[in-house]
C-alpha cells in the first residue's frame, strides 16, 4: 500500500532552527550564518570586524571547522568569545550543533552572534542554523562564475561580500557579471566589495551590521 507522506526531509533540523530563532528573538541577538569556499577570507573578515567594532558592539563567534581550532584561536585573539565546533569531516553545521555550542557562550548583552560555517558553497546552504541572515563571502580570486555555479547559496543569502578586491588588478574577475548572476534569483541581495586585508569597503558592511542590530533590538 502507498502512504502519501509529503514531509520535508530536513524537518528535524528546521525544527531546531526554529526553536533557536525564537530564543534569539527573545534575547535580541542578531545571528549571521557566514558561508564561503575554503580560503575566501571568512576568518580574516571576522578578525577585522571584531576588532574594528569591539568598542560599540558585543560579538561572539561559533566556528565550524573540519578538524582544527586554528580559526577559533585567531578569532579569540581579538578578545571576542569564540567556540569551536569540530565537525570531524562533516561538510556543514547543523542547528543542533549550534544549540550545543550556545552552552559555552555568555549571551549576556550580546549584539551579534556570527556562525562561521564550514568552508563549502554547497552543503551549508541546505541547513538553517537559526540565523536571521545568511551572508555569502566570495573572493575575487575564485572567479566570477561562482554565483552561476552555486545558485542556491546566493539565492538564499541576504548579503554577498566580494572579498580580496585588492587583488582585482591581478585576476580576471567581472564584478558586474558576478553581481548580475547573484541578483537573478535574489534582487534584494546587498553587495559589498571589500578587502578584509586592507579594510577597503568595510564601512558599508559595518553600517549594514549596525542597522540590522538596531532592527533586531527594536
Amino acid at each position: 500500500m502507498q502512504i502519501p507522506v509529503v514531509r520535508n526531509i530536513l524537518e528535524a533540523n528546521t525544527n531546531v532552527a526554529d526553536t533557536l530563532k525564537t530564543f534569539f528573538a527573545q534575547k535580541g541577538i542578531l545571528v549571521l550564518n557566514l558561508m564561503s569556499s575554503p580560503g575566501a577570507g571568512k576568518t580574516t573578515l571576522l578578525e577585522r570586524t571584531l576588532t574594528d567594532l569591539r568598542n560599540e558592539l558585543r560579538m561572539a563567534v561559533i566556528e565550524g571547522d573540519l578538524q582544527t581550532d586554528n580559526d577559533a584561536r585567531r578569532v579569540a585573539a581579538t578578545g571576542a568569545q569564540a567556540v569551536q565546533i569540530n565537525t570531524e569531516g562533516g561538510c556543514h553545521l547543523t542547528a543542533s550543533q549550534v544549540q550545543e555550542a550556545l552552552k559555552s557562550i555568555d549571551l549576556t548583552g550580546l549584539d551579534i552572534l556570527f556562525v562561521e560555517n564550514v568552508g563549502n558553497l554547497v552543503c551549508p546552504a541546505e541547513f538553517d542554523v537559526g540565523e536571521d541572515f545568511k551572508v555569502a563571502l566570495l573572493s575575487v580570486a575564485e572567479g566570477d562564475d561562482k554565483p552561476e555555479k552555486y545558485p542556491l547559496l546566493f539565492h538564499i543569502s541576504a548579503v554577498m561580500l566580494l572579498n580580496k578586491i585588492d587583488l582585482l588588478p591581478y585576476v580576471d574577475f567581472d564584478m558586474d557579471k558576478a553581481s548580475r548572476h547573484a541578483r537573478t534569483l535574489n534582487a534584494d541581495i546587498s553587495l559589498f566589495p571589500v578587502s578584509a586585508r586592507t579594510s577597503e569597503g568595510l564601512t558599508a558592511w559595518y553600517d549594514w551590521l549596525r542597522e540590522k542590530v538596531r532592527a533586531k533590538r527594536a
Binding site: M1, Q2, I3, P4, V5, V6, R7, N8, I9, L10, E126, L152
Partner: peptide, 12 residues
C-alpha cells in the same frame, strides 16, 4: 525547485 521531501512510502 528548492523542495526536498518524501512524497510517499510503499509498505507491505
Amino acid at each position: 525547485g528548492r523542495e526536498l521531501y518524501i512524497e510517499y512510502l510503499e509498505l507491505e
